[in-house]
């Protein structure tokens, strides 16, 4: 058990409060221009209001992560921003253009990676990029000049003349990402970009996105993968039932909402232990399935007690976004 514990502590550091406070302060007196501003956005389908007064803004160079369980309103929000559906209330300004009024003008300077692949199966890799560039009204010479760099970026330099049907899932996603860059967009919108990919393919996408951020691109990302948000996003918003429940830097969110340390307790006696001792020793305790999650600002009393117990196993780790997400949106299953 001790091995596990030290390993967990080495891998991730417990967040330090001063750093998080500095990050919040930095965000507040930010002078970078706003690339996307969403104010009091509302969208209703019949009786069901799926977006309920959502407000956020994304500044140039940021990677803004929109987190939420299935059905939280993430995709609806993105569709409103792109001007594909009209909101019932609120205002949107994207790359300086009012949406939906000037949605077309806005979309000229935005790139989109949709949730589901929609590459053109009748074309090769290069043709997919070229034809998509045509949709932006870009001259063929401009598009053709960009294609080699984009293929390089997507790791598909040797696949230019290959048909889409022969590509792996990861390759298709990378090509979709490259396609979203064909118009050299100011803002890149990604709707769950790594859903359905294996871990290797996900890391390649993340590497690509980090490169883009290093070049100063602005990214809006929806995801329900906390590791994805943790790795990429500089600002996060957690939404549920169409409303914002928290927004800050990743570290800021953690320090605000979750106790810094977690002890996960499992094994035959875990539930009994949790009821008798766990609740007393943690500031908050949740049971999910066979595991008790004990949250505390100092886990030492918990660990000292657990060391004396038989029939329980445990893992001590720093709190992460998953804990935050579960705390804010609950443990019940969403369909």
């Amino acid at each position: 058990m001790n091995d596990l514990r030290t390993e967990a502590l080495v891998v991730r550091e417990v967040p330090k409060v001063p750093e998080a406070i500095r990050a919040v302060a930095r965000a507040q007196d930010d002078t970078r221009d706003v690339v996307l501003r969403v104010d009091e956005l509302r969208k209703r389908y019949g009786e069901n209001e799926v977006v309920r007064g959502l407000t956020f803004e994304i500044r140039r160079g940021d990677c803004f992560g929109l987190l939420g369980p299935n059905g939280a309103g993430k995709t609806t929000t993105l569709r409103c921003c792109l001007g594909l559906i009209d909101p019932d209330g609120g205002t949107i300004e994207m790359v300086g253009q009012p949406v939906p009024k000037a949605a077309r003008e806005a979309r000229i300077r935005v790139g989109v990676v949709p949730q589901m692949d929609n590459l053109d199966p009748d074309f090769t890799v290069t043709e997919n990029l070229r034809i998509y560039g045509g949709y932006f009204g870009l001259p063929r010479s401009v598009v053709d000049a960009r294609i080699p760099r984009l293929l390089e970026f997507a790791g598909l330099a040797s696949k230019g003349s290959v048909g889409i049907r022969t590509l792996s899932g990861g390759m298709k996603r990378r090509l979709t990402l490259a396609r979203a860059l064909i118009n050299d967009p100011e803002l890149l919108i990604l709707d769950e970009p790594t859903t359905g990919l294996d871990p290797q393919a996900r890391h390649l996408i993340w590497d690509g996105l980090r490169q883009l951020l290093a070049q100063g691109k602005t990214i809006l990302l929806t995801t329900h993968f906390m590791d994805e948000a943790e790795r990429l996003a500089s600002r996060l918003a957690v939404i549920d039932h169409g409303a914002m429940i928290a927004s800050d830097t990743p570290r800021g969110l953690l320090t605000q909402h979750v106790e810094p340390e977690v002890v996960e307790v499992y094994g035959d006696e875990a539930k009994k232990w949790a009821d008798v001792h766990g609740r007393r020793l943690s500031s908050r305790l949740e049971i999910a399935g066979e595991t008790a999650f004990c949250y505390a600002s100092d886990a030492q009393p918990l660990l000292a007690d657990l060391a004396t117990r038989a029939g329980v196993r445990y893992l001590h780790r720093p709190a992460n976004l998953e804990d935050l997400f579960i705390k804010l949106t609950g443990r019940e299953l969403r369909d």
């Binding site: 000229i108 929609n118 053109d120 949709y135």
Partner: peptide, 14 residues
């Protein structure tokens, strides 16, 4: 089936 239209309307095409 191919969602080609969906890709197209994400570009500045209505």
């Amino acid at each position: 089936v191919q969602r080609t239209w969906e890709a197209i309307i994400n570009a500045p095409i209505s």
